[in-house]
Design a protein around this nucleic acid. Sequence first.
DNA 1: AATGAATGAGTATTCATTCAT
DNA 2: CATGAATGAATACTCATTCAT
Lengths: 202, 202, 202, 202
Amino acid sequence: MGRPRYQRRKEDRPQEIAEAAFAAFAEKGFTATKVEDVARRAGVSKGLLYLYFKTKEELFKAVIRGVVTPRVDELTRTLDDSELSAEAFIRGPLLTFLKRLPGSPASVVIRLMISEAPKHPDLVDYYWENVASRGLGALRQLLERGVANGEFRESAVNELPQLFIAPVMMSIVWGIVFADRSLDTDKLIETHVDMILAYIRA
Amino acid sequence: MGRPRYQRRKEDRPQEIAEAAFAAFAEKGFTATKVEDVARRAGVSKGLLYLYFKTKEELFKAVIRGVVTPRVDELTRTLDDSELSAEAFIRGPLLTFLKRLPGSPASVVIRLMISEAPKHPDLVDYYWENVASRGLGALRQLLERGVANGEFRESAVNELPQLFIAPVMMSIVWGIVFADRSLDTDKLIETHVDMILAYIRA
Amino acid sequence: MGRPRYQRRKEDRPQEIAEAAFAAFAEKGFTATKVEDVARRAGVSKGLLYLYFKTKEELFKAVIRGVVTPRVDELTRTLDDSELSAEAFIRGPLLTFLKRLPGSPASVVIRLMISEAPKHPDLVDYYWENVASRGLGALRQLLERGVANGEFRESAVNELPQLFIAPVMMSIVWGIVFADRSLDTDKLIETHVDMILAYIRA
Amino acid sequence: MGRPRYQRRKEDRPQEIAEAAFAAFAEKGFTATKVEDVARRAGVSKGLLYLYFKTKEELFKAVIRGVVTPRVDELTRTLDDSELSAEAFIRGPLLTFLKRLPGSPASVVIRLMISEAPKHPDLVDYYWENVASRGLGALRQLLERGVANGEFRESAVNELPQLFIAPVMMSIVWGIVFADRSLDTDKLIETHVDMILAYIRA
DNA sequence: AATGAATGAGTATTCATTCAT
DNA sequence: CATGAATGAATACTCATTCAT
């Protein structure tokens, strides 16, 4: 009450609010989350929230961007840096990355995108440009590298990098809908990657 | 104006209303759909809607059931009837069935389930019992038949029939989020099935 | 269902509906009673009810009149017929009559009048003319007879026949509000009458 | 128009709203009063009303409590303080108190209790504990004091303190139903008290 | 005469947003 | 900057009443 936590500076405020909002959206979804709850969670008044975010929608978009951008940067950085063979990269860093997704904030973002996409076309645009097309592009590049150095044969998989994502999406959706009815997510993804590699190996 | 204000059509009403509701939910989701809109779409007054469905939630559940039940019945009937080898069945009727899903009402149901699951646990239960577990059970049976008559080797796929569904889910989610940014859904599913068969063939 | 009960004749219908309405009003009050419930209770369709009573209000008024009229007639007849001395009459038939009121339909009518009076001035007029003023007039007459033949002294009671009714009203209101928290109604009324007689005896 | 649309007055609001609500309930009863009307009367928006009272029912209960509590406190205080003989007390402060009731807010509360009792059992409980049983208890005590110091004889009145209230209730009900058809309330109550005293004097 | 399907005005309640302080 | 009191548009649901059959 009396003491501000962490000697708060005004620069942190938007970030703090966005985090609170993310947590709230993760729990209840966008529509069901009340602006007041977000403010309370952030330890801030409603008025102040509106000082930084013009509307609830603005807040939503900011939150999505805030979560998504660093994550995609991480992915592309990983891909760029790698010195491994394509297969070794897929079995190593990529597999690790994919297996992490279902339990990560990314899964929350996907849930939010699925629920809200129809009402937020500009958010979809943003997501497309900054996440989907970049991610798929990176995957495509990886596959092409594999073909170029004789590891992989040409195949339809080259044009459908979504195939890599499919079991991740399956796991995420399963988690959203069936929460408690457990599915061995790791095994699903591993088997899937194994299968792809068997299929495209030269 | 042109039409009579009063139109007795007791038998058809529930069905008509449910169809209008399905269309509305498909467009805007459950929460964003106003009961009044559903009524208008059905060419009916709000009051009449409430005569047949006690609450908006009841209506929702009825709609889901109405879409889901016949579809699942179709699936299990298809599986039961078949005289084909497991692989022939997968490449034939099953592939056809899977390829149809992304453009079908099923995809709407899945979107609704994803958005509303957290608020409708009983609906999830219903969906689990009548769709998910039955569908997965049928797939598992099919794979076991393949193993039994020497077509398939024992493998992880047997325990993860979700792998069959993954590209369908991917396609559906893609369609929800990216609507217009086309994805060759058929090819995705075909390639995926091809890949699975190559993987599990004895 | 198939057989009409009691070989119903159309002449009885309004009466039957009114009785059903009275029962419903007694249970839930006027506002809380749905026209549909009345119709169901009467074993009749809503449409037919509206054939006999133009509005719910009409029905209400008819019901009040139907209950009230015969009861008042009984009272005035009792008073007119009597050959007894005033005190004997009071201790006998009148006391009996008063003690019966709290458990009788009259008490329902009073509850309804209290709740609905502000919205039904014409009903109040009817009630005043046919019940209150006639009843009070009869009581006044009785008291005057007692004075005339030397039983009672002149006193304020003559001008306030409401004093006779007071404990009855008290009992009725108590019953409405406290239903289960019992009050010995009979004793209350007896004591009260005893007290009055002691007070006015010459 | 003239007044500012915004008027911060946190402390007073609940009180102001409760008063407006009391006035509205007094005029039209609970059910017939629209929340919007209460808000308008209080010069406040619907939303603000709901900030202070969670539901219309809550508001109702708060109003009843607000009116009832001070009045009962006044009564019990009066009784406790008195140094008078029982009869002097009855003819003095008690008579004054009783004569005031029919024109006071208490009468509104009683009307509301009569109309709403069946739907608000918890309100009845509250009323019983805080008004009825306390009031009757005080009266009983007073009568016992009179008996103890030889002023009064033992009589049924001791167990039926409701007898004191009867003409007050009669007056209140008369006022509710017949509003304009005047009744000399004061005289009714005075005569009644006179009568009781004559009856129980030792 | 009799039915009950159909209507739609009416009402409690919620919540994003504003603005006096 | 910061607050949270205040606003009011939006929405699910009810029920007296009508009218095609």
